[in-house]
Simulated assay, not measured.
Amino acid sequence: MPRKNALALILACCLSASPVAGKEHRLNLHPQWEFVADTVMGGVSAGEISDVTLDGREATRLAGEVSLDNNGGFIQMAFDLQNDDQTFDASGWAGIEIDVLGNGEEYEIRLRTDQLSRPWQSYRTAFIAAKVWTTIRLPFSDFTPNKTDVPFDPKRLRRIGILAYGREYQADVAVSAIRLYR
């Protein structure tokens, strides 16, 4: 294997991402999803993430009840792009693409960079999780700053999250793939 190809393979493995076969314009991410809820700040929303097979696709599912009690209002599944809390340079990519199945409700995808110091700061955009598997493209230009004046810098991307947020409802959203696209 030529040295250049070996280095590319090592980098792809370290970044927990791999190119989609035959499609260099997409980079599959392989997240280690974590569950987070408003209970970290006194809320009472409840939920879980689970690995499931839905309509023949392996996916990670976020399900639960979002409650506004005690100033709460979210459940989330999120992952860091690097294992060591380092940043990922996504500046060569146009945005995030997800394969998603849900209950027809609105969810948010939130991005965090190393420039954000408070847990409530992010860059976010909304999407509808249809009741059939759907591929959704979310350009970085659609993400708006939330509780920060710092502009989004894709060179400093650190974390991606899928949230059920802001109102009382039953959340049920599954993600079978998440990737960057050009």
Rank of each mutant, 00 (worst) to 15 (best):
N70L: 07
L157R: 09
P119W: 08
S141P: 06
A21F: 02
L163W: 06
L81M: 09
R57V: 01
V36Q: 04
R61Q: 14
L163G: 00
I96V: 14
R159L: 09
L29P: 05
I128E: 14
Y181I: 00
N146M: 10
M77C: 11
A164V: 03
D114Q: 07
T134N: 11
P145H: 07
R112N: 11
V36L: 13
Q115E: 14
G56T: 12
K147M: 11
T148C: 04
R118K: 13
D85P: 01
K155S: 12
K131M: 09
P139C: 10
I49D: 08
N28Y: 10
A37H: 04
R3G: 02
E34F: 03
L180Q: 02
L62D: 08
G104V: 11
I160L: 10
V40Y: 04
A171F: 00
T87K: 09
G102H: 03
A8Q: 15
F88N: 07
Q86G: 15
T148V: 09
R159I: 01
I49L: 06
F35P: 10
R182L: 08
E65F: 03
T125W: 01
I49T: 07
T60W: 01
A59I: 02
L157F: 15
E48R: 13
L116K: 06
K4G: 02
R158K: 12
D51V: 06
R26Q: 13
K147C: 05
P139W: 13
Q32K: 14
K155M: 11
S18M: 13
F143L: 07
Q86Y: 10
I98V: 14
I10M: 11
D149G: 11
P145T: 09
S45Q: 05
R112Q: 14
E34A: 12
T60L: 01
I178H: 09
S50P: 01
N5G: 07
I96D: 02
F143Y: 10
L15N: 12
S122L: 03
S18F: 10
T87H: 05
A37W: 00
T113E: 08
G102K: 06
E24C: 05
D114M: 01
R124M: 10
A177G: 09
E48P: 04
N5S: 15
V175W: 05
A8I: 15
F35Q: 13
T135V: 06
D69L: 04
A17L: 10
Y123D: 11
N70I: 03
S122K: 03
H25I: 02
V132N: 13
N71R: 13
L9F: 12
Q76M: 12
I162W: 07
I136L: 15
R110Y: 04
F88E: 09
L7D: 13
G95D: 05
N28I: 00
S141C: 03
Q32Y: 04
A90T: 11
D85H: 08
S176I: 13
K4C: 05
V36F: 02
G47W: 00
A12S: 15
G73T: 06
R156P: 01
S141L: 07
L138M: 12
E97P: 00
G95N: 03
R3K: 13
Q170T: 14
V44Q: 04
